[in-house]
Design a protein around this nucleic acid. Structure first.
Lengths: 213, 213
DNA sequence: AGGCTATTTATACACTTGCACAACAACGCC
DNA sequence: GGCGTTGTTGTGCAAGTGTATAAATAGCCT
């Protein structure tokens, strides 16, 4: 009767990844409260005890899951800036477009982000992780902005540059949220179009083919 | 030994408010997971059983707490638009300023917002509540934008107006997040100044040369 | 003052939680 | 093939969870 469950031994890295993915899935679906070791283990296709074999405790698993999430998000976002042979302005537009379409616009990722970041006020570790991610992102923006303005023969000072980066960052973040939470209210590409126009207005760039007054 | 704890009978409305406030405090501090009936009751200065006397269950208390939070947030935000005797442009600037300073820029409120909104993907009730709040907010923005542009003798069509409202909403939301999460990185009034400039750029308004703060 | 009643406390209960640990079995190595 | 290592399971446990319910008492009405 007492037939023990069959199992396969997986590589350590694979198991850890599976557990982290299962954690993110659980958090996205039921929130931090619903992400119990048993739920997570079930989703990963193992039993609860195994978690403690790979992580010192549940809290550590959550930490690593959040780190993995952040890393994936920023990685995808920055990838859009990698185009070498484009003009600064094109690269900026591509950056905005990439951030306002799938897979970065995604309800599940947003749920995860919101759930974790909600604890940043109480958890200093989390707060610092966010701070660093945010500054890194803003720095990328500032670099491109500098290039765009340089290509237009404009010499902004540091404060001006910083303000532009903050504003553009806000535009992208704000539209990202709107898209994640109410994506079906926008036609495909609409958010990106709004974002590009707003960013170019912020930088005082002439609209390319403007019928807009 | 078995001295029963002294207590005072409070009015129903008062007790419900206290319990809701205690709930929001608990959620802000320890997240949804840490907001147990006992924690909440302790904070409200009562014992756990009393919660069930005022609310059918814990879930209902959380629902009402979220509703109360949203109501306070939108109420404060809209109040800034109430100035009757100002020009549309001044009212828009005041709106932006109000949304980018205390008490709307507040880490605790942000934590609450993020914690609750993180469950919008899974909880349709929550998602609808947010949707309505968001559309109401955007509508307010759209109305002021229409007035501002009208005062400048411009006649935007509906689509243009909608895009402006979406963009401005994004600017405010994005800067709100930055301010809540990293408020000490900005000097007082800086976010508001950035916001006003970005909004005016989005609308194509000539920058005022002067002492706006 | 003395009851009446609804508010409030206190206790109980079934269930879930994270974690500890012993038994087991999959897989590499000889 | 047998064997040892260790990844994996299953069970147990104390603490904590939401809820149910009985007992107590504060405050109003007369």
């Amino acid at each position: 009767m007492n037939a023990r469950r069959k199992f396969r031994r997986e590589g350590e890295e694979r198991r850890r990844q599976d557990l982290i993915d299962a954690t993110l899935d659980s958090v996205a679906e039921h929130g931090l409260e619903g992400a119990t070791v048993r739920t997570i283990a079930l989703r990963a296709g193992v039993t609860a005890g195994l978690i403690r074999h790979y992580f010192p405790g549940k809290e550590d698993l959550l930490q690593e899951a959040y780190a993995a999430l952040m890393s994936r998000m920023t990685e995808q976002a920055k990838a859009a800036l990698a185009m070498e042979d484009a003009s600064p302005r094109q690269r900026l537009a591509a950056f905005v477009t990439a951030n306002l379409n799938a897979p970065i616009i995604d309800q599940r990722v947003f749920s995860l982000w919101a759930t974790f970041i909600g604890r940043a006020g109480a958890d200093p570790t989390l707060a610092r992780a966010h701070r660093e991610g945010y500054l890194g992102f803003r720095n990328e923006v500032e670099t491109v902005v500098a290039e765009v303005l340089a290509a237009e023969q404009r010499k902004p000072d540091a404060a001006e540059l910083r303000h532009h980066a903050i504003a553009i960052n806000a535009i992208i973040d704000g539209l990202w949220i709107e898209g994640c939470l109410a994506g079906e209210m926008f036609s495909p590409g609409e958010l990106a179009a709004i974002g590009i126009k707003a960013v170019e207005a912020e930088l005082g760039l002439a609209q390319e083919r403007g019928e807009d007054q």
